[in-house]
């Protein structure tokens, strides 16, 4: 009987560890979120959304950083989405079994997890060094480069989910491939494609590393794409590491805003995606 007891004991022990591991993971999620809410909510006030980032030691808000983030994220999406969607379309529709698609798929998956700071260096070399100064445009392009692999991946995956009989039916009517894709495949995969874009927005709106030396930072409100522009993550980085209480408080508030935005975006994307796959 001893061997049964030993096996049962070992089973209980290791499975217990699995429960502990799950508890560990969930505890950190809850801990981080609670800390954020506790520290961030203290500083939430209308001033955060109506005033500029302050000089050291005085009160202020995050308006220029929030606007800067919105502008650069929007531009990044505009830059990266069309390229990503077209590339994903090629891989799922025209070149599904081609060599090119296989190579692009492999490279794209690597780009998907490549360190984002390297993208910052790349854009610095290509744009900032050439133009001679930091600019919001460079920041937006850097974000766009990060968007591309995300959108390529989801576009391909979602188009592959579209049943082939739909395409065949359209082709039997005499429609050329481009119309089959545009009028049938894209429409059938619409929710999935939107999910991909939302995921890309969630991914880049928290990105700091690629903005550090492309868009830099700007203490004032600016809409000039040719000049440095503030962004929420970079401001958080600068303020959190500063010794000033007011700045640190703003960093926490900014962190709360950004996390709330990113997490709700990814939850919305998930819900949209889930509807698609279950129906």
């Amino acid at each position: 009987m001893a061997i049964y007891d030993r096996r049962r004991g070992r089973n209980g022990f290791y499975l217990g560890l699995c429960y502990v591991a799950t508890g560990f993971g969930l505890a950190f999620l809850v801990w981080i979120l609670l800390t954020l809410i506790y520290n961030g909510a203290k500083g939430l006030s209308p001033a955060v959304f109506t005033q500029m980032t302050p000089p050291p030691g005085s009160e202020g808000g995050l308006l220029n950083a929030i606007l800067g983030s919105l502008v650069m994220t929007g531009l990044g999406i505009v830059v990266g989405t069309p390229l990503g969607m077209l590339a994903g379309t090629y891989m799922a529709e025209y070149g599904r079994h081609s060599k090119l698609a296989a190579v692009v798929r492999f490279i794209n998956d690597i780009l998907l997890s490549a360190p984002s700071i390297v993208v910052g260096l790349f854009i610095y070399e290509v744009m900032v060094a050439r133009m001679g100064h930091f600019s919001a445009l460079a920041g937006a392009v850097a974000l766009g480069v990060i968007v591309v692999p995300v959108v390529v991946r989801t576009t391909e995956d979602m188009l592959l989910l579209v049943p082939n009989p739909l395409r065949e039916a359209a082709a039997a009517l005499g429609l050329p491939r481009s119309h089959v894709i545009g009028k049938v495949a894209y429409r059938a995969a619409r929710a999935g494609l939107i999910t991909g874009v939302l995921l890309a927005v969630a991914r880049i709106s928290g990105e700091t590393a690629p903005l550090l030396f492309t868009a830099l930072n700007n203490q004032f409100y600016s809409t000039n794409l040719d000049a440095p522009m503030a962004s929420l993550p970079v401001v958080i980085f600068q303020f959190a590491l500063s010794p000033y209480k007011e700045w640190q408080q703003l960093a926490w508030t900014g962190a709360l805003i950004i996390t709330a935005a990113v997490l709700s975006l990814s939850i919305i994307a998930r819900v949209l995606g889930a509807q698609k796959s279950s129906s």
């Binding site: 999620l29 954020l36 993550p233 960093a251 950004i258 997490l263």
Partner: peptide
């Protein structure tokens, strides 16, 4: 658990530091 991956890395930074 996947939401842990969605939290931006700067948030981990500020949480880790403070």
């Amino acid at each position: 658990i996947e939401l842990l991956a969605g939290i931006p890395s700067i948030i981990y930074g500020i949480w880790g530091l403070f």
